[in-house]
Design a protein around this nucleic acid. Sequence first.
DNA 1: GAATAGATTGTCT
DNA 2: GACAATCTATTCT
Length: 206
Amino acid sequence: MGLSTDIPPTLPQSFYRRSALIVARECIGKFLVSRVGGTTTVGRIVETEAYRGPDDAAAHSYRGRRTPRTEVMFGPAGYAYVFVLYGMHHAFNVVTARRGKPEAVLIRAIQPIEGVPVMARRRRLPVGHRSLADGPGKLCQALGITKEHYGADLTQGIITITDGPRAPVVASSRVGIDYAGEWANKPWRFAERGSVFVSKVRSTSV
DNA sequence: GAATAGATTGTCT
DNA sequence: GACAATCTATTCT
């Protein structure tokens, strides 16, 4: 079956058709592949956050809020939920769970793997800069992901996620959702242990 | 290294 | 009309 042993298989829809909590954890170590603009850029996912639908005050789909923006989360798993943030940044999410359950996983940081010069150019940073994709807005810019990719099928097409070796994962609280009360403290942010490519909070002592 | 302010627009009240 | 699942430059220590 394998034409090449270099390229791991694209994750099937069944990977996404589970709880956001599980998918968020299992996404760590997988490869996010973008072919935007005909150029391939690849990053290894090192940080994610789970957003759990109607019960989660931090989720856009809290209380089942269903608008043109959140619509894709109510559909089947394995599609892209992209939204604009602070008027100038994009954030890329993977829709999880079954149809009708508006859950999603925010991809917060990737470790640049392939197409680094392209990522640097898109970020308008010199090659060798170390903050290419360590944040939700940054990775969208580096991979060329925009609103135009809202609703994209992640099991085929220009944005896909392929399997990768399992990595050690640590959980912590989510970022930038202080308004969500008790929900802000849930340990629903996942990161590869020890990765220097994660966003924000870095350990002060190493 | 840490803290702070400003950028800028789609989305919802 | 207010605010947001952020990023960057700037200021201070």
